[in-house]
Lab assay of single mutants.
Amino acid sequence: MDETGKELVLALYDYQEKSPREVTMKKGDILTLLNSTNKDWWKVEVKITVNGKTYERQGAVPAAYVKKL
Rank of each mutant, 00 (worst) to 15 (best):
M1P: 13
P62N: 03
T54C: 12
L8W: 13
A11E: 04
A63S: 11
K43S: 11
V61P: 00
V61C: 07
Q16D: 13
N35H: 08
K27W: 04
N51Y: 06
Q58S: 11
V61S: 01
R21F: 15
L10Q: 09
R21P: 05
W41T: 04
K6A: 10
E56C: 15
V46F: 07
K39W: 05
W41C: 07
W41M: 06
K6H: 13
K43V: 15
L69T: 04
Y65N: 05
E22C: 07
K43M: 15
L8A: 06
W42R: 00
K39H: 09
L33W: 04
V61M: 04
E7Y: 11
K68F: 07
D29V: 03
V66Q: 01
A11M: 03
D40M: 11
W42D: 00
E17P: 14
L69R: 02
A63L: 01
V50W: 07
Y13D: 06
G59P: 01
E7M: 13
D14K: 03
Y65M: 11
D2F: 13
D14V: 05
E45L: 13
S36G: 10
T32F: 09
G5N: 12
K39Y: 06
L31R: 03
K18A: 09
A60Y: 15
G5V: 13
T32Y: 09
S19F: 05
L12I: 08
Q58L: 06
E7D: 09
D2H: 14
V50H: 09
D29L: 05
M1L: 13
W41L: 03
T32P: 13
K26D: 01
G5C: 15
A11I: 03
L31M: 12
P20N: 10
E3H: 14
L33V: 06
L12F: 02
K26W: 07
D40G: 07
L8V: 08
V44M: 00
Y13Q: 13
P20M: 08
Y55P: 01
E3I: 14
Y13S: 08
R21H: 14
E56G: 11
L8M: 10
R21E: 15
D29Q: 11
Y15P: 02
M1N: 13
K47W: 08
K26E: 05
K68Q: 06
T49L: 10
G5Q: 13
Y65Q: 05
K6P: 13
K53F: 11
L12Y: 03
E3G: 13
T54L: 09
K67T: 13
R21K: 13
V9A: 09
V46W: 06
N35W: 05
Q58A: 09
Q16M: 12
E3N: 14
E7H: 10
K26P: 01
E17Q: 13
D2L: 14
P62M: 05
V46M: 09
S36K: 08
K68W: 06
P20I: 09
N35P: 01
Q16V: 15
K39A: 12
T32N: 06
K27L: 05
D29P: 00
T24G: 08
E17A: 15
M1D: 12
K27P: 02
R57E: 02
V44H: 00
G59V: 06
V23W: 04
K39N: 11
D29G: 01
Y15M: 02
D40F: 15
E45S: 15
V61W: 03
T24Q: 02
G5Y: 12
K18F: 04
S36N: 07
A11Y: 03
Y13L: 09
V44R: 00
D14M: 04
I30A: 01
V66W: 03
I30E: 00
K26Y: 09
E7Q: 13
Y13M: 12
I48K: 07
V9S: 00
I30P: 01
Q58E: 09
E45R: 10
K18N: 08
T32C: 10
V46S: 06
K68V: 10
V23M: 08
I30W: 04
K26N: 07
A64I: 10
K47E: 08
A64K: 12
K27R: 10
P62G: 03
E22T: 06
V44E: 00
D40Q: 10
A64T: 11
G59I: 07
V23G: 00
D40T: 12
D40Y: 15
L34E: 01
G52T: 03
I30R: 05
S19Y: 05
V61A: 03
V66M: 05
K47A: 09
K67E: 12
A63E: 02
T49F: 11
L69W: 08
V66I: 07
V46K: 13
N35Y: 05
V50G: 05
D40K: 12
K68M: 09
S36H: 07
D2Q: 14
D40A: 08
R57Y: 07
N38F: 06
P20L: 09
A64L: 09
K43L: 15
A11R: 01
Y13N: 07
K27M: 07
E56K: 15
E22D: 04
E3R: 12
L10R: 09
R57V: 08
W41Q: 01
